[in-house]
Amino acid sequence: MTKKSMQRNGFLLAAFAIVATFLVLAVEALTADRIKSQQRAQTLRSLNEIIPADRHDNDLYQSCGLVRNPALGSEQPMPVYRAFDDQKPTALAAEIIAPNGYSGPIRLLLAIRPDGEILGVRTLQHQETPGLGDKIELQKSDWILSFAGKQVRSADDERWTVQRDGGMFDQFTGATITPRAVVQAVKTAALYLEENSTTLFNSDLANCQEASNE
């Protein structure tokens, strides 16, 4: 192969890489709004499942504020939704992160009553192994429903782990890391929401929608 042909092939490869990168970026830009809309719809569906309409008379999505606290599993501000019925606080829901999933962070939605009783948990986003760790999805297993009705007594509540570690939650065959991460994240966040419920209900939090539009 001559030097000229090598240069030509190198140029063609570089041009192909540039075009491919441009196409990827273009597709991401075109689908970003659609993905955001789908994520919002999923969150709304999950909110309505764990905080049913008979528990509130306000618009949960419009009553969303941003909260920055490590107990929610992220250094970034996380959405917290506040439910009221006749102006009386009835539930708090927060998007939380289980940072130590088997294949990466797991995004969850957790709702509690003001007294700390858990109304429900749903999985919003994850990359866990299909057939194993993906049993945290309600579509794959009813495991995620096991949180409803439970309460964290304290930071030292030893019940809040999987049965293999002496706790009260089932683990998945061949995939203990995933449920262990979810249980720990829910425990930490639920305790934080309960201990700070009065402040969270009454604070003037940064609006989720305004922040997302910046």
Rank of each mutant, 00 (worst) to 15 (best):
G10N: 11
F11V: 08
A14V: 11
A14H: 02
A15V: 14
F16M: 14
F16I: 13
A20Y: 14
L23D: 06
V27N: 08
E28Y: 12
L30E: 15
L30C: 13
L30N: 13
A32F: 10
K36Q: 14
S37Y: 09
Q38E: 15
Q38S: 14
A41V: 13
Q42D: 13
Q42C: 08
T43Y: 07
R45K: 14
S46V: 13
N48L: 11
I51T: 04
A53K: 13
A53T: 13
A53I: 09
D54T: 08
R55V: 11
H56Y: 01
D59Q: 08
Q62E: 09
C64P: 00
G65T: 00
R68Q: 14
L72N: 02
G73L: 00
G73K: 04
S74G: 01
S74N: 03
P77F: 00
P79A: 01
V80G: 02
R82D: 00
D86Y: 09
Q87P: 07
T90Q: 12
A94K: 00
E95H: 00
I96N: 03
P99A: 03
N100Q: 12
G104F: 01
P105C: 03
P105N: 07
I106D: 03
R107M: 12
L110T: 08
R113M: 13
P114D: 02
P114Q: 02
D115I: 05
G116A: 05
I118K: 07
I118L: 09
V121D: 08
T123S: 12
Q125G: 11
H126D: 08
T129H: 03
P130Q: 05
G131Y: 03
L132N: 04
K135Q: 11
K135D: 10
K135G: 10
E137Q: 10
E137I: 01
W143C: 06
I144V: 09
L145M: 10
A148Y: 06
A148S: 13
K150P: 06
K150M: 07
Q151V: 12
S154Y: 09
D156S: 14
D156W: 08
